[in-house]
Simulated scan of single mutants.
Amino acid sequence: MVYYFESNVVSPSTTLFMGIDKHENEDLIKWGWPEDVWFHVDKVSSAHVYLRLKSGQTIDDIPSTVLEDAAQLVKANSIQGNKMNDIDVVYTMWNNLKKTPAMEVGQVGFHKEKEVRKIKVAKRVNDIVNRLNKTKKEEFPGE
Results as ranks from 00 to 15, higher is better:
residue 91 Y to C: 09
residue 15 T to F: 14
residue 143 E to H: 08
residue 66 V to W: 04
residue 97 L to Q: 12
residue 42 D to L: 08
residue 114 K to I: 09
residue 96 N to T: 09
residue 136 K to M: 10
residue 99 K to E: 01
residue 85 N to K: 10
residue 2 V to I: 13
residue 48 H to R: 02
residue 18 M to Q: 11
residue 94 W to P: 13
residue 104 E to D: 14
residue 111 H to Q: 11
residue 91 Y to A: 06
residue 13 S to L: 09
residue 90 V to Q: 09
residue 127 D to C: 01
residue 99 K to M: 05
residue 93 M to E: 08
residue 62 I to L: 00
residue 107 Q to C: 06
residue 109 G to T: 14
residue 134 K to V: 01
residue 89 V to D: 01
residue 102 A to C: 06
residue 67 L to V: 02
residue 41 V to Y: 03
residue 90 V to C: 05
residue 8 N to V: 00
residue 50 Y to M: 05
residue 54 K to E: 03
residue 130 N to Q: 13
residue 46 S to C: 05
residue 135 T to W: 04
residue 98 K to W: 12
residue 10 V to E: 15
residue 44 V to K: 09
residue 42 D to T: 08
residue 7 S to D: 13
residue 44 V to Q: 06
residue 97 L to C: 12
residue 64 S to W: 00
residue 34 P to F: 07
residue 53 L to V: 00
residue 39 F to D: 07
residue 129 V to R: 07
residue 80 Q to P: 00
residue 77 N to M: 06
residue 79 I to Y: 13
residue 95 N to L: 07
residue 24 E to D: 06
residue 73 L to P: 01
residue 122 A to Y: 14
residue 4 Y to M: 04
residue 69 D to S: 03
residue 114 K to H: 14
residue 5 F to G: 05
residue 13 S to Y: 11
residue 24 E to H: 06
residue 110 F to T: 11
residue 16 L to Q: 07
residue 143 E to P: 00
residue 23 H to M: 01
residue 143 E to Q: 14
residue 143 E to D: 11
residue 106 G to L: 07
residue 54 K to Y: 00
residue 105 V to Q: 05
residue 5 F to L: 12
residue 80 Q to D: 11
residue 91 Y to F: 15
residue 58 T to R: 09
residue 3 Y to A: 05
residue 42 D to M: 10
residue 109 G to C: 08
residue 75 K to S: 01
residue 77 N to T: 08
residue 21 D to M: 03
residue 12 P to K: 12
residue 17 F to D: 05
residue 27 D to K: 10
residue 114 K to W: 09
residue 2 V to R: 14
residue 35 E to C: 13
residue 81 G to I: 07
residue 91 Y to G: 09
residue 87 I to W: 06
residue 141 P to W: 03
residue 117 R to H: 14
residue 85 N to Y: 02
residue 143 E to F: 13
residue 25 N to S: 12
residue 34 P to V: 07
residue 85 N to G: 11
residue 36 D to M: 04
residue 53 L to M: 08
residue 139 E to K: 15
residue 98 K to I: 01
residue 53 L to F: 01
residue 100 T to Q: 13
residue 70 A to W: 06
residue 110 F to E: 04
residue 133 N to W: 05
residue 3 Y to F: 14
residue 29 I to S: 01
residue 125 V to D: 15
residue 89 V to Y: 04
